[in-house]
Amino acid sequence: MANTPIMTVADLHKTYGKPGTKQYEALKGIDFEVNAGEFVGIMGASGSGKTTLLNMLATLDQPTSGEVTINQQPITHLKGNQLADFRAKEIGFIFQDFNLLETMTAFENIALPLTLQNVAAKKIKPAVEMVASQLGISQFLNNYPNELSGGQKQRVAAARALINEPAMLFGDEPTGALDSKSARELLDLFTTINREQAVSILLVTHDPFSASYCQRILFIKDGKIGQELHRGDRSRTDFYQQILDTLGTFEQ
């Protein structure tokens, strides 16, 4: 498992604006791989292109050129139903603003990816209950999102992202709207999921504390990957310090 790439990104470019008008190149050739079971972070300042990159990887946007492969499947040219099915089956997504449907209970929100694929009702309930107990939200399943705290909402969102056992879990500043305690709990949760279930995680953040939970961090600046950090066997606090140092010099 150690060295099989679950995702490869090759020479990814993204240019905004039509030819002939004023163009802006957000991504200027990105190459990297994520191995199965890896926990990778992407860091960068605002406007560095990290959200653009994430949108390409998660099939929410199309690159101008280059290729992304997830689980041996090229994804940049997927369209229509194929695209929808790919998102539903291979990708889990956690957003900064939770993106829960506030008209549905936590249970219904988590079950949604399964009902979309018309999984039998009998199988849905145990699946939801299992993932909920892993994430410690079993007691909130009948609550609506606006009755939950930010941390609880984000765990519901995580449960929804994980219920399909996706090949990749993407997080877009998932701790951005959380207080430090909830953020810590969520990140611990990610670590546990990553270790115990070998889910590959790609986290986009500008927060060094969140990033310190990753095994490897890619720094992105002006549309290119500038630097790469590996945690190796170091403790999280050491790694956090290194990230801070790197950021200090990287952004100069």
């Binding site: 998102r87 997504f93 449907l101």
Partner: peptide, 8 residues
């Protein structure tokens, strides 16, 4: 949102 989580 539904579109993002893979609804046809």
């Amino acid at each position: 949102m539904l579109n993002k989580i893979g609804t046809r």
